[in-house]
């Protein structure tokens, strides 16, 4: 079932040397999970950035770290 979902989710990524795959098993489930939640994460990031911009405009906050 999960393999079938992956086959639907798979897109055409950039050409990447596979050497680093030999180093760390990122976990196919973890990679898929990130793809599945990508939209949510993007939305959260955009909302956070917009809030930050608004706060900066209103209160002149500066980014830390």
């Amino acid at each position: 079932m999960v393999s079938w979902i992956v086959s639907l989710a798979v897109g055409h990524g950039p050409d990447v040397s596979p050497w680093f795959w030999a180093y760390l098993d990122p976990g196919s489930g973890s990679m898929l999970f990130q793809v599945l939640i990508a939209g949510l994460l993007s939305a959260l990031f955009c909302a956070r950035s917009a809030l930050f911009e608004l706060k900066s405009a209103l209160f002149g906050d500066h980014e830390r770290g």
Binding site: V2, S3, I5, V6, A9, V10, G11, H12, G13, P14, D15, V16, S17, P18, W21, G27, S28, G29, S30, M31, L32, F33, Q34, V35, A38, G39, L41, S42, F45, C46
Partner: peptide
């Protein structure tokens, strides 16, 4: 989803993950 049998294509991406998602 940790122990799924999902397979990524050899040297291929499992799917798009934009920089804003990252």
């Amino acid at each position: 989803v940790q122990h799924s049998d999902a397979q990524t294509r050899e040297s291929g991406s499992p799917g798009r993950f934009s920089q804003s998602a990252m």
